[in-house]
Design a protein around this nucleic acid. Structure first.
Lengths: 216, 216
DNA sequence: TGTACATCAGTGAACGCGCGTTCACTGATGTAC
DNA sequence: TGTACATCAGTGAACGCGCGTTCACTGATGTAC
């Protein structure tokens, strides 16, 4: 693509080229290093884990950047605001939805039940770091900015679709309805299992939900 | 009860009497006014609503006290810390569980379904202020101090018991199991209905859950 | 009943602290010629 | 190939702000006598 005029706005779509302010000609700018992109991804991944562990509001940027091996000042080389990071970390978290499919693929039959059992395991309840973001951040996500909520919403739909696909003996709308309720119930169950201070009740919430979701 | 010695520790159980420090005799102290107790209750009620609306972490004490018609300095005349208020506000929120029973009492039959329908109504989804604290604060409660979690846990058990009582055609353990799953699913459904940015999906989460919870 | 005094809920300024955000600077890297 | 220069990710001090908490003070209320 030829770029021979300053007013050509196409440079906005090709960030490798920029117009130097105050000068009337096109400057070729150094390609952003792959390392920079990797650092950015690391910050997002670290944030996703930190938010799940401590909550969005309770996680400070300085703390978070330190966890990513950087000082806080570098943050704004990658993101315009904390809100932007929250949205991206949320989207990043939702990519784990695909892992659900692949892990369920190994189970020869009753895949839906395998997914539910995995989700409602004691291990998942006790591991917020890599667990489900809906359960870890549910009430905070409900108050988050639109971008984060949209990412979460997309992740929910993706998860519902995966579960619905397992109900292949049902009509599509019935399968989707069942899937919506299954996913909602799983999220509610893990949330309550984490809140309650009674260990027996916590276990019961998970096991009873497992049992009853098979014939919901 | 006679109190004729400074060392009598029973004054701890009767706060209307106190030992003046540095003096070797019992002093009768002015009775705490009913107004003070009412102010305290007002702070707790205001806090419960504010937490539900904005989240625990995001609600500042100054903001909260202003909402209760006071300045922030007065806070520590009533509470030792924000954590203590969180726990009390949580307990206060759980008292609404009883309202569920009384409102269900008016319904002549199918009380369980009436409770579920009420809980999963659009009105409840859209009204966080007076709504269910598990749904409004779920992920924050999971990270709260033990006192708040215990209060929440007790509220959950109370709600489960109310629902279980409606399943009177079942054996008690079966009824309780059904109730645990019903309540968890309701909480998860409202949470997800609040997160999603797709209005149709939000409504669907509520209506599908309503439908399927009747024969869970 | 009147007076002097103790109590204490509420006020508002102030505390240290950590928050999100900004910025001048560094120094390694890539580019122009 | 060597030199001069532009870029920009990362550093660390600093910004204003609101947080939870403390405290000296006020003034209405209740009590003692």
């Amino acid at each position: 693509m030829a770029m021979d005029t300053v007013l050509d706005v196409s440079y906005k779509q090709t960030p490798n080229f920029m117009v130097r302010p105050g000068q009337g000609r096109i400057q070729r700018v150094k390609k952003s290093k792959a390392e920079t992109a990797e650092t950015r991804r690391r910050i997002v991944r670290t944030a996703a884990a930190a938010f799940r562990k401590n909550g969005i509001h309770a996680t400070g940027l300085a703390e978070l950047m330190a966890a990513a091996g950087l000082t806080h000042g570098a943050f704004y080389r990658h993101f315009a605001s904390k809100d932007q990071l929250v949205a991206e970390a949320c989207a990043e978290s939702m990519s784990m939805v695909e892992d659900v499919t692949t892990s369920a693929e190994h189970c020869s039959r009753k895949r839906a039940q395998a997914i539910v059992d995995d989700y409602l395991s004691l291990a998942h309840r006790d591991d917020k770091l890599t667990g489900c973001s809906f359960a870890a951040l549910g009430s905070e996500l409900a108050r988050a900015r639109i971008d984060a909520r949209t990412a979460a919403s997309d992740g929910f739909v993706a998860l519902v679709d995966i579960i619905a696909k397992q109900f292949d003996q049902e009509a599509p709308e019935i399968a989707k309805s069942r899937a919506i309720v299954t996913v909602s119930a799983m999220i509610g169950a893990i949330t309550m299992a984490r809140i309650t201070t009674d260990p027996a009740l916590s276990d019961a919430i998970l096991t009873e939900t497992k049992k009853r979701l098979s014939d919901i």
